[in-house]
Amino acid sequence: MKLRTREFNRSMVTADNISEISARVSPGITDSGQGLIFGAACYEAGMIEMLRGIAAEALEFGMGNILVTRNTKKALKEQVEKSEELRQNLNEDTLVLLEEYEDATQNAADRDAEDHFVEGFIRGYAYLKRQVEFGTYFGVRGSGG
């Protein structure tokens, strides 16, 4: 089995680096405050991309299976029952088409589940970041308030 690997640049960028980068990339930015706003936006975009990779990697290699809820088990059971009922009423050619359809549907559901996991991971990061910056986090007031 060939493992999917991802490469990340895990080095951190300092405020001085951000100012230098913003001056180089956007020469119209002369105010260091503008540079820091630009840099913060770039940093956040980079962090989100890095989190996407980490979340996908965690889902694929480290998190294990996500538990199936009672409601999902019930829906899956109904899906299997309806599929079996349908299979009994199809000719061979149509049965092949149904199997291809079910494979395509499963692939779409797998991608959807991965996308939702990654998005939840990123939203969790954003939530915790806001709590640290502006709210209370484990009973300690954030630096922003």
Results as ranks from 00 to 15, higher is better:
Gly62Cys: 01
Ser83Gln: 05
Gly139Thr: 12
Asn71His: 03
Leu3Tyr: 01
Asp112His: 10
Leu95Cys: 01
Glu60Met: 04
Ser83Glu: 14
Gly28Lys: 15
Ala113Glu: 07
Arg6Met: 03
Asp31Met: 08
Glu44Asp: 12
Lys77Ala: 13
Thr94Gly: 01
Tyr101Thr: 08
Ile122His: 00
Ala45Phe: 15
Gln106His: 08
Gly144His: 06
Ala126Thr: 03
His116Gln: 15
Tyr43Phe: 14
Ser83Pro: 00
Tyr101Phe: 14
Thr30Arg: 12
Gly53His: 04
Glu78Lys: 12
Glu85Met: 02
Gly145His: 09
Gly53Trp: 01
Ala126Lys: 08
Gly124Met: 04
Ala55Gly: 03
Glu102Asp: 09
Gly62Glu: 02
Phe134Lys: 09
Thr69Trp: 02
Ala104Ile: 00
Asn17Tyr: 12
Gly33Lys: 06
Thr69Pro: 02
Pro27Phe: 09
Pro27Ser: 10
Ser143Ile: 15
Asn89Arg: 00
Leu76Pro: 01
Gly39Ser: 11
Arg10Asp: 13
Ser22Leu: 14
Tyr127Thr: 07
Gln34Val: 09
Thr105Lys: 10
Asn71Trp: 03
Glu85Arg: 03
Ala40Asn: 07
Gly64Glu: 01
Ile66Val: 12
Ile29Ser: 02
Val132Glu: 04
Asp103Met: 06
Arg52Val: 05
Ala15Gln: 07
Glu85Ile: 02
Ser22Thr: 15
Leu59Glu: 07
Tyr125Ser: 04
Ile29Arg: 00
Leu36Cys: 02
Glu44Gln: 11
Lys74Thr: 06
Gly139Gln: 08
Gly28Arg: 13
Ala41Phe: 08
Tyr43Pro: 00
Asp103Thr: 09
Asn107Tyr: 06
Ala58Tyr: 07
Val13Lys: 09
Gly35Val: 12
Gly64Arg: 00
Ala75Tyr: 05
Gly144Asp: 08
Gly139Ile: 15
Ile122Glu: 02
Val96Met: 02
Lys129Cys: 07
Asn107Leu: 15
Leu67Gln: 06
Ile37Thr: 00
Phe117Glu: 01
Ser143Gln: 10
Pro27Ile: 12
Ala23Phe: 14
Gln106Asp: 04
Ile21Leu: 12
Glu114Ile: 11
Ser22Tyr: 11
Phe134Glu: 10
Gly142Asp: 11
Ile48Leu: 06
Ala75Leu: 14
Val118Gln: 01
Gly124Phe: 04
Ala113Lys: 08
